[in-house]
């Protein structure tokens, strides 16, 4: 549709809000990233050098990479699986609510919930954490789930993230799945396709753009993820992530320069994914 300048009427409210609450503060963040902790001394690229060279930051980068792969794979994968399978059962609403439930829980409460799962007590005492109770019942020794680095504790934290966010992927993907016309699925089945073929050749192509959206959203959340790490370990035992470092530098250490530099790095890290997204949108518009 081409209709002169009318599009600005539709965009104006959004642009005003985005400008005031996100774009202007981001410009300010970029400026502050070249200043010292109290924003009064110009320090050039020093904050960036520190962000890319200090040991805690390097560990955080590594962990974010782990989050990126494992968290995204599981949230999107299980979200898709559930969206497709739940369409076939009559008790869909109940299961959906169960998977969605963690999204409705504040992260402080999530910290308490997982305390009941990961808690460690010595072998001599009754276990009050579920996982260690299972381990002990199977004849093992209790494990410090949040202590043992580098795999156990990071994966334990990622599991909490997956538990929370799969509900998001499921809801969005399910909404899109419901958009597939029933006739399309039936037609494929009548043509003799089995369920797996229907999934591959009808469902996936139809959901492609929504899958891309959900995956992008999860990647963005991985870059921003901090609350789970913050309440459970605050980055101890090599579990730190970039956004948690930023939060600490800003809110506790009052180092606005370094915190701003880390925020800018987050913003830069998302650019490749933006390019992919826009290419996909172009392709979508070319065929519709």
């Amino acid at each position: 549709m081409n209709m002169g300048r009318v599009h600005w009427l539709y965009l104006a409210p959004a642009l005003l809000m985005l400008g005031l609450f996100l774009i202007y503060p981001t410009a300010e963040t970029v400026r502050l990233s070249f200043y010292g902790p109290r924003s009064d001394v110009f320090v050039g690229f020093q904050n960036y050098v520190q962000a890319f060279t200090s040991q805690p930051m390097l560990i955080a980068f590594r962990n974010n990479l782990l989050w990126l792969v494992v968290f995204t794979l599981f949230t999107v994968g299980m979200g898709l699986l559930l969206a497709v399978l739940l369409d076939r059962v009559r008790y869909e609403t109940v299961i959906k609510s169960v998977i969605f439930l963690p999204m409705a829980i504040s992260y402080v409460a999530a910290g308490v919930i997982w305390r009941f799962v990961y808690t460690f007590r010595p072998a001599v005492a009754p276990q009050i954490g579920l996982l260690n109770a299972i381990v002990v019942a199977l004849g093992g020794n209790p494990i410090g789930w949040l202590i043992e680095r580098p795999w156990v504790n990071n994966l334990a934290l990622i599991a909490v993230g997956v538990w929370v966010w799969t509900g998001f992927c499921m809801v969005i993907l399910s909404a899109a799945y419901k958009g597939i016309p029933k006739e399309m699925l039936e037609a494929a089945r009548i043509d003799g396709a089995n369920e797996w073929q229907v999934f591959l050749h009808v469902t996936i192509p139809f959901l492609k753009s929504t899958l891309a959206v959900v995956t992008t959203t999860m990647i963005v959340f991985v870059l921003k993820v901090f609350d789970i790490v913050y309440v459970m370990t605050n980055g101890a035992y090599d579990t730190d992530v970039i956004a948690n470092r930023m939060y600490n530098e800003m809110f506790y250490f009052y180092n606005y320069g370094l915190a701003s530099a880390i925020a800018v790095i987050l913003f830069l890290a998302i650019i490749p994914f933006l390019v992919i997204n826009v290419r996909r949108f172009r392709a979508q518009e070319a065929v519709r």
């Binding site: 503060p25 963005v220 701003s260």
Partner: peptide, 27 residues
Amino acid sequence: MNFRGRQLLLMTVIGLIVIPLQMTLIP
């Protein structure tokens, strides 16, 4: 709607999802 700068605008909007809101508090 077709207009110039549409894709750039879209990219900016998606990019803004990543802005940590903590950085916006003071301004």
